[in-house]
Amino acid sequence: MNNERQTIVELSNSQTKPAFSSFSVIVVFLALVIIGMAFIPVLDVRFKPSRNLPQLSVQFS
């Protein structure tokens, strides 16, 4: 009886173990934030957009 209980406890402990630690998730998130912040100067943000918008014309003959 005691061996069965021990086996069940071992199985339940092995199933509840997270795939990644909290520390790893936070470090990856911070790395992605830093990478994202590095791309901010590259973004094309126009505070006064021009009147000429990109257009696509399709003609059928």
Rank of each mutant, 00 (worst) to 15 (best):
M1H: 15
M1C: 05
M1A: 14
M1L: 12
N2K: 11
N3L: 10
N3V: 07
E4Q: 13
E4P: 06
R5I: 10
Q6T: 08
Q6W: 13
T7A: 15
I8D: 04
V9D: 13
V9F: 15
E10R: 15
E10K: 14
S12Q: 08
S12E: 09
N13Y: 07
N13W: 09
N13M: 03
S14M: 12
T16P: 00
K17E: 05
K17Y: 06
P18W: 14
P18S: 10
P18M: 04
F20Y: 11
S21N: 05
S21A: 06
S22D: 11
S24E: 11
S24R: 14
S24W: 13
V25W: 15
I26Y: 14
V27G: 05
V28E: 06
F29H: 06
F29M: 07
F29W: 08
F29R: 02
L30D: 05
L32E: 01
L32Q: 04
L32P: 00
I35F: 11
I35G: 03
G36H: 07
M37Y: 09
A38Y: 10
A38E: 06
A38L: 01
F39E: 00
I40V: 08
I40M: 11
I40H: 13
I40Q: 14
P41E: 04
V42H: 12
V42P: 01
V42M: 15
V42R: 15
L43C: 11
L43T: 02
L43G: 04
L43Q: 13
D44E: 04
R46Y: 04
R46H: 14
R46P: 01
F47Q: 05
F47C: 01
P49A: 12
P49M: 11
P49K: 13
S50C: 04
R51L: 03
R51K: 09
N52C: 00
N52V: 05
L53C: 01
P54F: 10
Q55H: 10
Q55N: 01
L56H: 12
L56R: 10
S57R: 05
V58P: 02
Q59T: 10
Q59W: 07
Q59N: 13
F60A: 09
F60N: 01
S61R: 14
S61D: 09
